[in-house]
Design a protein around this nucleic acid. Sequence first.
RNA 1: GCGCCCGUAGCUCAGCUGGAUAGAGCGAACGCCUCCGGAGCGUUAGGUCGGGAGUUCGAAUCUCUCCGGGCGCACCA
Length: 683
Amino acid sequence: MAAAGGRIALENQGFLRHPRVYLELQQRLRAQLRSVLTAKYDLELENIPIEIPPDLQFGELATPIAFELARKLRKSPKIIAQEIVAALGAVDGFDGFEVAGAGYINARLDRAAGVRLVAGGKSLARVASGLHSLVEHTSINPNKAAHIGHLRNAILGDTFVRLLRAAGQKVDVQNYIDNTGVQVADIVVGLIHLENKTVAEVRALIAESDNHAADGERIDYYCWDLYARTSQWYEQGSDEENAVRKQLRYATLHEIEQGSNETAEIAELISTAVLKRHLETMLRLDIEYDFLPRESEILHLNFWEAAFEQMKQKGVLYFENEGKNKGCWVMRRPGAEVVEGALDEDAKVIVRSNGTVTYVGKDIAYHLWKFGLLGKDFGYKPFFTYSDHECWISAEHGDETHPHFGGAQATYNVIDVRQNDPQANLVQALRGMGFVDQADHCIHFGYEKVALTPRCALDLGYEIAQEDLDSPYILVSGRKGFGVKADDLIDKLIAATSAEVEARQTGADENERRLIAKQIAIGALRYFMLKFTRNSVIAFDFKDALSFEGETGPYIQYAVVRARNIFRKAGINPQTVLVEFAELTGIDAYLEGEAAQEIWALWLRAGRRTLVLEQCIASSEPAYLAKHAFQLAQEFNNFYHKHHILTEEDPARKTFLLATAAVALRELVMALSWLGIESPESM
RNA sequence: GCGCCCGUAGCUCAGCUGGAUAGAGCGAACGCCUCCGGAGCGUUAGGUCGGGAGUUCGAAUCUCUCCGGGCGCACCA
């Protein structure tokens, strides 16, 4: 597996019965080329490259295969290309082939046939692929409000879930809750020792925050500040005081892990309250979960012990008798050179010399469960109700009836690239235990951080060191309370879109305007987080994030609204147009000549849906779909500008143009829905 | 010291398994509403793809090296 964003063989992805225009044509061409090469040169090539040329003047598909063969056949590429073209004959869906440049073979599609194929491409037909995947995302420490970095995580994860489901996979969405970690301990230290709160007072604080949610008294915001204060408190005193405070921190952590005491009760109360807030924040973006596994259950249900036994049995772990890791159970790191009998001081510690288990160890146990290999299960209780399903949470003693989670064939872990090493260790452990297939399908869906531009940090009122002013970005820090809270950003976006909606007097009534403003705001935010590829650091700036022009979600939504307006004015719906279009003859005439190039390009782009979906899944990269949606919108806007549909006098041509708009609309709406972006009725 | 990522137009970023004249958005300059809503469309300016070497018919893409930046490398999570 590649460290960040692995690839899975495409034949496992279940696309075979999915509507696919480009892929189908590619396959036909490839098959024909293959048989020509065999017949003519007695050559069996494993891979025949077929690409999409940079310009329509070179056709719709092309292959540089002749260059590759030139040396082997001792002929010039041009001659070879000519021979192949002569031998190709007719291929269904293609108009012809020609040699261009120094030896390219360019294929021209039968445009009318291509248009028919695209027009007939059914809207989202979900074909079960038989694959069961598990996507883990969000996983925010439940001790403070969500910030923009968490938004990137959740939006990437949620979008990928939508892509897998579009490809027909069964997907479970999990949000892992570290409710017994240091970060929760810190907030508990703050509550008990800085705020002097009792269990009853914490309970009251949470109840009060529920009632005053609108006044900024929200519990996650309260914790945001308290967490920052507590983090500073550890370092503010004299050396002796700080040592005592750190002791307090670890004593608190220990009590939380143990459970059944007041400290643990406070941790449980506060982490659950903050978790609820996180779910509410994410719901604003249409992000939902199926299951919330918590670390407390992984501890109390002894998941680790079961994993430990397996790992010892399979020889993945060994007890170290010497060196710096003496007394620990350790594991070889991936890529470590195995020298028999030699001391491997670089080995990863899984069980400490005091008998406690490290993070990676717990994660291994959790992942064995994910793949159904642990031989243990969580208890389950309902926790949060969505409009059409329930989100469950882990429990020591759960309800009798509950859905089944875990036992997936593939898992995607949406986690920051900084966790590259631990994720690699995890995969190594699975592989070492003989679970090779699972290791290959345990994918670290890594992504880079969201930082702030220095200007943005200054605008927020933070003090910036002189040397940081020139750097491209400044890292956010929960510990310092330095960052942009998710809800604040969403509020700002909605305020901005509301102002626009009011100014344009969009929408019939107050409720509708509110809905539209929300749809646009979410569209802008989700697109902003998805337009960058995963390994690019986002330097966050309000100016860019609040932009609704150019390469943005609202730009694409606007294209949809324009298309819908055409049908509204014409008094006909897109489906009806496509039915009429199926009966229309002589469409070739509308696809020829210079003027038709952009229209044909739009149809071609519309036919790329499945190709793009496949690329996104194979490379774990939703940004490709974001780019596709934008380009489609761009080409539609271009078409919209140049071809006035409603005043077209030739009824046949008018039907053709309407069909073009109908297909563009269908593909735009679908692409947006896969991105988790709604298509407003007007804007 | 070891490992991973990044360096492409003034700014922010695309560039698919190496392939045809290196693209988009923003910003800049100038245009386009008697015509399906201008959150739109068009034109112009702007790049030795960090430097160098190599592999190849062909390199932004692969290899090596150097420079510059980020992040990992805990008996933390």
